[in-house]
Computed example of a mutant assay.
Amino acid sequence: MSRPQYHAVDSHVGKTPLIRLNKLSELTGCEILGKAEFMNPGGSVKDRAAYGLITDAEKRGVLKPGSTIIEGTAGNTGIGLTVIGHARGYQTVIIIPETQSPEKLQYLRTLGAEVIPVPAKPYSDPDNYNHIARRMAEERGWFWANQFDNTANRQAHYETTGPEIWEQTAGTVDAFVAAVGTGGTLAGTSLFLKEKNPEVTVVCADPYGAAMWSWFTHGNLDNDDGDSFAEGIGQGRVTRNLEDITVDKAYRVDDQTALSVVYQLLREEGLFLGLSSGINVAGAVKYALDHGPGLTIATILCDSGAKYQSKLFNGEWLLENGLDPGLSVEAAFERNSA
């Protein structure tokens, strides 16, 4: 009898379940399916990008034993880089906008990352968190992961997320829906699915204040249309990961609709998720209501709600920001279609 093979934590990124969202599937007459990315070792879909960025750098010889990885991140990529980095012998320095949830900062520090919060500034500002990370890498000889423009990010999804969804749906997937942060998830997954079946519809779910709805709908980056509390998504430029991809449809999703989805999934499905997951699922529901019934629609459940309890699951914070956790999904969609 052969001995079983065992692997360290970095070998267990991906292969997450594809969960049927029962209530929303019944509501739309479609199969609404969520990829349970909160089950990755670092707790989010960004573990896939982190693993891809690290292993690609190792193959290229730019990341060597004992090196330090630095990255500008809203949190989840930093968590993934820290978890996988520790497993492979690296230290991490994380530059993060100070607007992100305090749970993320504490989690990163607990994991052992050096965390440097900085004022939130647009990409056009030289003191944007990504530019700070790049400069520090150049000055100190560290490896800058560069998740936004390093296409090893989308390649990781091309090699894992896309094939997993294709296999888990037995090739019956009709549409894939994802929001854009770096663009890696939407780009890499859709490139694979479109190769397997060009008829698969690719849908971008975009929060207010981001530019991707405008880009995929009108070909411009006009994003002067509001704001969102969603963390880790909402892009104002075309990153290298987004170049040369086909997106067939884009939807604007407001925070209240996403929040209604998050709370319904918590109360009726037992899924504890963050707002970016709510935006993704809301986008899937919008597409289903517009084009169903009978479709199989896959989306990404990005991470758990644990890192957002001081905001999304805090009644006082919700009240202060005009968000109602008791508003049903049906009511939220009706309000926005009126």
Rank of each mutant, 00 (worst) to 15 (best):
Y158M: 14
G270P: 06
P102L: 07
E199F: 00
D324A: 10
N76Q: 13
S124K: 15
A282K: 08
W166R: 12
G42N: 06
R60Q: 15
Q235A: 07
E114M: 04
L27F: 12
E269V: 12
Y90S: 08
W213D: 00
E316R: 15
F143Y: 15
L193T: 07
F192L: 04
L266E: 01
A331S: 14
I95H: 08
G184W: 02
E195L: 04
W166K: 13
A258T: 06
G322T: 11
F333W: 10
A187W: 02
D224C: 03
G226T: 09
F229R: 06
L323T: 09
I300C: 03
L266S: 14
G75E: 05
I300W: 01
F313G: 05
G219V: 09
M136T: 09
L266Y: 08
T217W: 04
Y123K: 14
L108S: 10
G42H: 03
V177F: 00
V9Y: 02
W317H: 09
V83D: 10
G326D: 09
L18F: 01
A145D: 13
S11K: 10
L111F: 07
S228G: 09
L273W: 01
L289Q: 13
E316P: 08
N40Y: 06
V173L: 07
V45I: 14
Y263R: 11
S260R: 11
A258K: 05
L24E: 03
N280C: 05
R267F: 01
L312A: 04
Y263I: 06
V13C: 07
I84L: 15
V281K: 03
M39C: 10
V202S: 03
L81H: 10
Y90W: 10
L81R: 05
L221F: 09
L193E: 00
R252E: 00
D127P: 11
E243N: 06
L301P: 00
Q91F: 03
P163W: 13
I297W: 05
R267V: 05
M136R: 15
S337W: 00
G85F: 04
T28I: 09
V281C: 02
L319R: 10
P17C: 08
M1P: 07
P17E: 06
T246E: 05
M1L: 06
Q91V: 00
L105E: 14
I95E: 08
